[in-house]
Write a protein that binds this DNA or RNA. Structure first.
Lengths: 340, 340
DNA sequence: TTGAAAGCGGTACCAA
DNA sequence: TTGGTACCGCTTTCAA
């Protein structure tokens, strides 16, 4: 009943040749009309005929053919990690991809399944992306960067603490976060500071530099940094809280607000007073952290917006030889509330 | 100093013709060797020469050229919405894309910038995706589905409450969530139930069906459903709590756990006893909900895993004419804790 | 103003 | 066992 008579269902999608035939013109003319090529003047009647034919057939150009001919794509490749990152990062990532789309790029997410750095670069290069934005899941090597550039990538951008030769660097220095947290705790007079390391796999990318930053802030002072591990479960938090007093710590930087909330509750349930006996500080400035009592102190992270990064990508694509910019992606500052 | 002499930096990436030339064979042979084509026997010495040449030049095949020739791609297109979805959904989405990658698909995220349904379908079709998984950001039409199928899509899968003709349906019926919540509150003797609608744009996709489900559960009973709006800020929550008593409600289904936590705290700060005076229930079963006192009641959502969906995609791609499956993506059940 | 044809980089058929 | 070559769909000279 609801068969549409005009479009036979499963004939393959028509090509520009089909349009040309129906309109009684050449394929060249079809291309000119449909792309509004300005270097060539096509009479209005012809334009109309071509457009009508395209419309009637439901013509859709073939992106791969087009970019094969053009010699380049509009693909921005985003390697993605298979890890449970926080809400802040998700939001950033989502916004980035959205803004890239707005700038008319095609966003390809590429999960790099345990590939080595150079294998991954090879796999990415097959798509001939015009840009690669590596958020740090895979360590790009200088060779990898070179390969990508040779294969048409005009922008290779890495976030993450370390520079890669040949790539544009956006430094997202997680260490600042740990540094701010510990500096703040020290100001509050704390001297034996625990640093929480999540047990969840994949989070080392964030937790290790945060710990390093904490150590840096304590370096050369009388402050002791003690790493402690915890999983994101009530049981693990309770277990840790249960042996808290043995650890003899008077403060903890709890990786982020989510872990901090969990641990703080567990400490309270174990009758450890926060902040008197132990100060707690998280990171990310989640709204929910303000709901607990005491209100959770946190490190507010000023992250670049996805839009910002998308625009940088676009700028580099347009002018790859511009001075290799180096941007700082975040600033961190402690936001004391009641738990520290 | 660290210039690698072997690979001249900016000569374009070599083609299979270059490899053939260097190895002293034809392009056909290169293709056979590099693809391990079994229908053809190539001598071992030749294989070695070809592989060596490819290696030396840093040959990387051109995906677009390959799929142009092949007549199909391995692209799975994932239209994405520009909305702040919850952690559950993010996790699902991330897992989905990861598992698709594992099955050797190329995941393309496609933000559909205010395109209409059919314009979007056209834009997607340009990429000739082998599958499209529409999570509901854009309402696919039957014409859109037909266009995609004609252009090579073997699987067109829609999540969301409504079926689309021609597409495989995965029903993610958000209504169940509201229904479970209200049924639970009714059991607890509540009769004037508020349903929180977030003010954040884009969330209607979830909030509307949840409200509809709530209404369904109340239909034909003496229970009143009252929609109330709130933004995800402390101010908005405080404002709502400030006029709570005027509303005369004895319970609220607060959209999800995050909004619920925010509202519950605001109610408590306004001296409204939870659950005595007003019961609160959220949804998503976030770990953090258990940290507040009283512990937050919630609706646990049993969501299909990304892996599950990825496997379905793969199955349909392999056998598009299999019976048009219809899957149910979630089950919802109330999980009473202390706030209701 | 329009058309013929080359060519982008692979693959696979048919011959040799 | 290997090579020649047509072709996938599109853009863009170059001629007419």
């Amino acid at each position: 009943m609801s068969q549409t008579p005009k479009q036979p269902a499963d004939r393959p999608v028509p090509t520009s040749a089909d349009v040309a035939r129906l309109a009684g013109v050449s394929r060249a003319t079809v291309s000119y009309v449909l792309n509004n090529t300005s270097a060539v003047r096509i009479s209005e009647p012809t334009r109309v005929r071509v457009r009508a034919a395209a419309e009637e057939l439901g013509y859709v150009p073939h992106a791969a053919a087009r970019s094969l001919r053009a010699g380049h794509t509009r693909i921005v490749l985003l390697p993605t990690a298979h890890i449970p990152v926080g809400p802040l990062y998700s939001r950033f990532f989502n916004e980035l991809q959205w803004e890239l789309r707005r700038l008319d790029y095609t966003v390809v997410q590429y999960g790099s399944l345990g590939l080595g750095a150079d294998e991954a670069a090879r796999a990415w290069a097959e798509l001939r992306p015009v840009a690669v934005v590596s958020l740090g899941e895979i360590e790009l090597t200088p060779q990898g960067v070179r390969l990508l550039k040779r294969s048409g990538a005009r922008a290779v951008i890495t976030l993450g603490p370390q520079r890669v030769e040949g790539a544009h660097a956006l430094v997202m220095d997680q260490r600042e976060i740990g540094e701010s947290a510990v500096a703040h705790l020290r100001e509050r007079g704390r001297r034996r500071i625990g640093v929480l390391i999540p047990e969840e796999p994949g989070l080392e990318l964030f937790s290790k530099p945060r710990l390093a930053g904490a150590r840096k802030a304590a370096h050369g002072t009388d402050t002791v940094i003690e790493p402690v591990t915890m999983a994101y479960t009530e049981e693990s938090a309770a277990e840790l809280a249960g042996r808290w007093r043995e650890l003899g710590l008077d403060a903890v930087f709890a990786y982020n607000d989510e872990y901090a909330m969990l641990l703080m509750r567990a400490l309270q349930d174990a009758d450890i007073d926060v902040p008197r006996e132990t100060a707690v500080i998280g990171a990310d400035d989640l709204l929910l952290g303000r709901l607990l009592r005491p209100r959770l102190s946190t490190v507010h992270v000023e992250m670049v917006t996805g839009r910002h990064l998308a625009e940088l990508v676009d700028r580099v694509v347009r002018d790859p030889d511009g001075a290799p910019e180096r941007h700082d992606l975040m600033g961190a500052r402690a936001l004391p509330r009641e738990s520290s």
